[in-house]
Design a protein around this nucleic acid. Structure first.
Lengths: 191, 191
DNA sequence: CTCGTATTATTACCAGGTATTAATTAAGAT
DNA sequence: ATCTTAATTAATACCTGGTAATAATACGAG
């Protein structure tokens, strides 16, 4: 009953899910190549697993995005914006997913905390182009897989088109990260 | 010369752009219906306006989103390590891809420079776990799409299990980023 | 009426599928 | 060695939402 080929059907289907998890934009042909089986087999597997075709998957991803936070020129923000008062203060939430942590320790890699705070700081400034000039940051405590990081940012000063922004990131009641950013607002023509 | 139908070509094309701006998931057939012209006309309009077909538009939106979530890759290092002397110095190269830049300006988003330098700094330290403690960084000059950023890092000091690392990132002969990082080496059991 | 632009229609082709039916293969049981 | 059955592959017709190219038609100005 249980056939032993190179891989069992079940193994292959698990790999298929893993591949699509890593990259939902793979065609059946590419998947067939990756898994060493024919295209019809991939189709049957998708059917059994209830996985829709490439174009549907793509659209689902796109619609998620489009429905979510098209407010600012998004795609530019790390984390989800939950509250913002342009030119003043803002809050964003980042949920730590497996691909963001170090393999061994499950600790969030530092640059995600930086990216969340930095992009929130940039989002606060209402200009065509906002660039980070400098930053001073402190990593206070490791953040772990599945934790939720809430970043708070507020503009504390302004000189011409330079803004000074302070951020604090928390997990629960614990501070995990603090940053001071200087960002510069520019218009598209003065580049 | 100027034909006066229900609407001019120009009016219609403006409406077309407006419709797609509001909802990028409209097919040519739906647009034709909305604007009261034939499908071929819509195609010609898109051609003139340089607007890609539905599936391409959908994919672009989806990739923006996907790029945002997974932007900071899965490897532990951002950029490619080209030279390293553990405990002392290292060099990594990062090529700026479309998903790393701001849509409008094609300028590399700051946290990539941070991530490259930070992960290089971490790579220099030979310990089971290395965490960033603090950082002070300066963004000197915008980096553009397709440019190659070379990050140089060296350990300048050490106190117990704290290391002080300075980095400089260059595009060609131009400095684009500088950073000072303090990283802390830990063993797995003392977490 | 005629010229030129705009529009519409038609046709052949493509990717990436769905859905179905049939043929082939692999491997364990007898 | 053959029988059996699931798994796999092949083959075919059809679908959407297009590209690209060409031809036919409408329409208004001169």
């Amino acid at each position: 009953m249980a056939l032993k080929r190179n891989q069992t059907k079940h193994e292959r289907q698990q790999k298929l899910v893993a591949y699509l998890d890593g990259n939902p934009f793979l065609t059946d042909e590419e998947l067939a190549e990756l898994l060493g089986v024919s295209v019809p087999t991939i189709r049957l597997d998708r059917l059994e697993l209830g996985i829709p075709e490439l174009r549907v998957r793509t659209k689902e991803v796109a619609e998620q995005f489009y429905g979510k936070i098209r407010s600012l020129g998004t795609g530019e923000l790390i984390g989800d914006l939950v509250d913002i008062e342009i030119g003043n203060r803002g809050v964003s939430v980042l949920e730590v997913r497996p691909d963001m942590v170090f393999g061994k320790t499950k600790i969030l890699r530092g640059h995600y905390l930086f990216a969340q705070a930095n992009s929130l700081a940039v989002a606060l400034i209402n200009a065509e182009v906002v660039l980070t000039g400098r930053a001073e940051v402190r990593f206070l405590k490791p953040v772990l897989l599945r934790e939720k990081v809430i970043a708070y940012a507020r503009v504390t000063n302004r000189k011409g088109n330079s803004y000074f922004i302070e951020t604090t990131s928390r997990v629960g009641n614990t501070d995990v990260f603090m940053g001071k950013f200087t960002v510069i607002a520019k218009e598209l023509n003065d580049l």
